[in-house]
Design a binder for these strands. Structure first.
Length: 221
DNA sequence: TGCCAGGCCGGGT
DNA sequence: ACCCGGCATGGC
């Protein structure tokens, strides 16, 4: 007796995990580093972000209180290597300000409680959009919310699981409905999609070794 | 040597 | 409701 066919979303997860193995995300030593990294990596390669985090570490500024007391100008200097550094300094400041103003400096408090409520709190901070909010909730807070990035959208379109008119929320719901609802799975799945994206969803990338090449897809997407 | 990266915001149609 | 430019460094 055959059960209901496994959804393509689950098949993709299995294939990626087999091909690449566990990714051990988020690449950070603490929830604080996850938050800072999530903001710094906006439209920026991770290498540049690592440098900026190293500089913050070197300067002894990787604590909420230190960040809170640092001037925005000084902060922007330290994170220069991550690009768009004035914008990002303001965004980190806005986050830290909200953390102390509304949650007495407790990240657990900020990320706790009802999920959608916590998510809306983050989205109300200037510079925290849906992807950054979900990354913080999942990787710093251990909350069950799927992170959708540009690679994820592109991969789903390639495999006819989404169309160009599907927005962030609709793609997020595709995963919430089809993937196994476990934090560990969401954690690994997003990381695996990024790995796939880096290897096969860039200009000049070859598809002949793509782990998903045997699934129905449109190579031109 | 250009083009691009694990977005987000604000202004113009 | 979309669409687009700005933000900016370092890697490939």
């Amino acid at each position: 007796m055959r059960g209901r066919p496994e959804s393509t979303i689950r098949v993709i997860y299995r294939k990626l995990l087999t091909a690449y193995g566990p990714q051990h995300w988020w690449p950070a030593d603490s929830p604080l580093e996850v938050v800072i990294g999530a903001i710094l990596t906006q439209n920026t390669g991770w290498k540049n972000v690592e440098r900026a985090i190293d500089a913050l570490k070197e300067a002894g500024c990787l604590s909420w209180h230190r960040l809170h007391n640092l001037t925005e100008e000084k902060l922007s200097d330290l994170i220069r290597s991550s690009g768009t550094y004035r914008v990002k300094a303001a965004r980190i400041k806005a986050f830290v300000d909200a953390l102390f103003r509304d949650h007495a400096g407790s990240l657990d408090a900020m990320l706790g409680g009802d999920l959608e409520t916590a998510r809306k709190r983050l989205l109300s901070i200037a510079g925290i959009g849906p992807e950054t909010a979900d990354a913080i909730l999942l990787y710093a807070g251990g909350r069950l919310t799927f992170v959708v990035d540009a690679y994820t959208r592109r991969i789903l379109r390639r495999h006819f699981l989404a169309t160009p008119k599907d927005d962030y929320e609709s793609i997020r719901q595709i995963f919430h409905k089809a993937a196994e609802p476990q934090e560990q799975i969401y954690n690994e799945y997003h990381a695996l999609l990024v790995e796939l994206g880096k290897r096969h969803c860039r200009p000049r990338a070859a598809c002949d070794e793509c782990p998903l090449r045997h699934l129905p897809h449109d190579p031109s997407l």
